[in-house]
Simulated assay, not measured.
Amino acid sequence: MGLLDRISSKQETTAPPESIDLGAQGELLVVWPDGPRVALPAAQLRDQCPCASCIEEGTGRKLLDPATIPADIRPVELHGVGNYAIQIRWSDGHSTGIYTWGLLRRASGLPPG
């Protein structure tokens, strides 16, 4: 299999959230255009980090051990990435994950939208 066989040219078409805020417990409060408002626990999102330090690029195997995530993990900063994602700087110093709208919808338990 060649490199081009492994690269998907499909672009994500998930609509951006109407808003993303931080809750009192460090959760992300996301309001989607189709109505649902969801609270995503910080530890759940940190565990789903899609960066190359947390997920092996070639195989998709998870490298991050959930037991190493501090119980009091919190987002420290949120930055928009284009019109397709946010980047979160976490209280444990990690900041390389880019959370696409599709990833956030899946974490919310919602179908692509």
Rank of each mutant, 00 (worst) to 15 (best):
A24Y: 08
P36L: 11
R46I: 01
T14P: 00
I88L: 02
L4P: 00
N83A: 15
Q48W: 05
G60S: 10
P41N: 11
D5T: 09
S108P: 07
P75S: 12
S95Y: 01
Q44E: 03
N83Y: 12
E56D: 15
G97K: 04
P75I: 10
L63A: 09
C54K: 08
C49Q: 05
D5V: 04
C54N: 09
S8V: 02
I86C: 08
P66L: 11
G35A: 10
P70D: 08
I69T: 01
P66I: 09
P33D: 06
P17R: 05
D34F: 01
L63V: 04
G102D: 11
Y84L: 13
L78E: 09
L29G: 01
Q25H: 12
D34Q: 11
G58R: 15
M1G: 14
V30S: 03
T68A: 14
A24N: 13
G26K: 08
R6G: 05
L78Q: 10
W101C: 02
R74D: 01
P16G: 15
L45N: 00
T96G: 11
R106P: 00
T96C: 04
Q11P: 01
R105C: 09
I98D: 01
R46L: 03
P75F: 11
S91G: 02
T14D: 15
I69V: 13
D65E: 14
K62W: 02
L22Y: 02
R105A: 12
G26F: 00
P70A: 11
Q25G: 08
L110D: 03
L3S: 11
T100V: 07
I98V: 15
P75D: 10
A85N: 10
A24C: 06
T96D: 05
P111D: 12
G26W: 00
P50R: 13
R74T: 10
D47K: 13
A39M: 04
D92V: 09
S95V: 00
G23W: 02
P66G: 10
R74W: 05
G2M: 09
K10P: 00
I55M: 14
D34L: 01
I88Q: 02
I98G: 03
L110T: 10
D65L: 13
Q11V: 12
A107Y: 05
E12D: 15
S108V: 06
I7F: 11
R89C: 00
G23Q: 12
P75N: 13
P66D: 07
C54P: 07
S8P: 00
A43F: 04
A24M: 09
G35T: 08
G80S: 15
P75G: 12
I7Y: 07
K62E: 05
N83F: 12
I88D: 01
Q25A: 15
G113H: 11
R89E: 04
L22G: 01
H79Q: 14
D92H: 11
H94T: 02
Q44N: 05
L28V: 04
L110M: 14
D72F: 10
L29P: 00
V30P: 00
V38D: 03
S91L: 05
L103A: 12
R89T: 05
D92T: 09
G82T: 09
P33T: 05
L3R: 14
T14K: 07
S19T: 14
V30L: 06
E27L: 07
